[in-house]
Amino acid sequence: MALVSRKALFETISPLIQFKRFRGKINIQRPRPPHFERAKYLALTKPYFISPYKDKKPIELCKGVVDIRNKRDDGDNPFQRIIAQELYRWFTTSRLVVFYHLNPMNAEEQYKAYVLFKKQKMHFKKYGKKTLEMAVKGTPYEAVLDFYVSHNMTVFSPDPEINKMLNITKKFPQLILLAGIYEGKFMSKDELVKYSLIPNLQAAQASLLQTLNSAAGQLVSHLNSHQTTLISHLQERAKQLEEEK
């Protein structure tokens, strides 16, 4: 009993303390402006330095791109020259060449587009600007270099099937039609669409033949109309004479 009473007498009780700021919490988003004297000294002691990124292009701020450019070997590449020669051959042998801007497109969609163009005997290809420059520099096709700014795709067709090309293009919104070369003539997108409305040679020949046949038929009918009218009148007169007898 003595031990229990002694513990109860010497035990200390710690009070519960809760800290609270006077006048509520601090407004961090819109703090109150400092006193004029304090604001003056803060403005005087504010550090001032020229930013090292001033007047620099975004590509100059990317260290990885600069390092890659410095490490790039600009020497002659025989394999690239072979590809450039093949590319120039595609330009000279194709009756229809179409240029696309390529928006983000996964490999599966690209393969589907390649298959659809391949079924129509069209070649869906992608080349770099340096390879294209090696192929068309100093040739009549040099103007196409202005289209190769970012990601581009090119379609080569031995036959000028503009309608088939436009039908396939409508299935892939990632392919933005820019321009094309039709029968050696450079054309814009609107001109290609206008040429697609013109029927092909077989349809034009059939329409011309139908027009000539209709004109010939009308001419024969006009030439025979007087004879036919005369014969019908004679037959009516003959019937009248037989009835009178």
Rank of each mutant, 00 (worst) to 15 (best):
Y48L: 14
Y48K: 12
F49P: 00
I50F: 04
S51G: 02
S51R: 02
P52H: 09
Y53E: 11
Y53Q: 07
K54G: 00
K54V: 09
K56I: 09
K56A: 07
K57T: 09
P58Y: 02
E60R: 01
E60N: 03
L61F: 13
C62I: 13
K63F: 06
K63M: 08
G64C: 05
G64P: 00
V65T: 04
V66K: 04
D67Q: 12
I68Q: 08
I68A: 14
N70C: 07
N70I: 09
R72P: 02
D73L: 06
D73H: 05
D73G: 01
D73S: 09
D74T: 11
G75L: 07
D76I: 15
N77F: 03
P78A: 15
R81T: 05
I82S: 01
I82P: 00
I83Y: 03
I83Q: 05
E86L: 10
E86G: 05
R89T: 13
W90N: 05
F91S: 01
T92G: 01
T93Q: 14
S94I: 06
S94Q: 04
R95D: 11
R95T: 03
R95S: 08
R95P: 01
L96C: 07
V98D: 01
V98E: 00
Y100K: 02
Y100S: 01
Y100W: 06
Y100N: 03
Y100G: 01
Y100V: 02
H101V: 07
H101T: 15
L102V: 15
L102E: 15
N103V: 02
N103S: 11
N103K: 13
N103L: 12
P104S: 03
P104L: 01
M105A: 05
N106S: 12
A107Q: 14
A107E: 15
E109Y: 08
Q110S: 13
Y111I: 04
Y111P: 00
Y111K: 06
K112F: 07
A113R: 03
A113H: 03
A113Q: 04
Y114K: 15
V115A: 05
L116N: 12
F117Y: 09
F117M: 09
K118G: 11
K118L: 10
K119D: 12
K119N: 11
K119V: 08
Q120E: 14
K121N: 15
K121R: 14
F124R: 03
F124Q: 06
F124W: 12
K125P: 02
Y127L: 02
K129V: 10
K129G: 03
K130T: 10
T131G: 00
E133K: 14
A135S: 08
A135C: 01
A135I: 04
V136W: 09
K137Y: 06
K137C: 03
G138E: 04
T139Q: 07
T139I: 06
T139H: 03
T139R: 00
P140N: 07
P140E: 10
Y141C: 01
Y141W: 12
Y141G: 05
Y141K: 01
E142K: 08
E142S: 09
A143Y: 14
L145D: 08
D146K: 13
F147Q: 10
F147M: 14
V149M: 09
V149K: 09
S150H: 01
S150M: 08
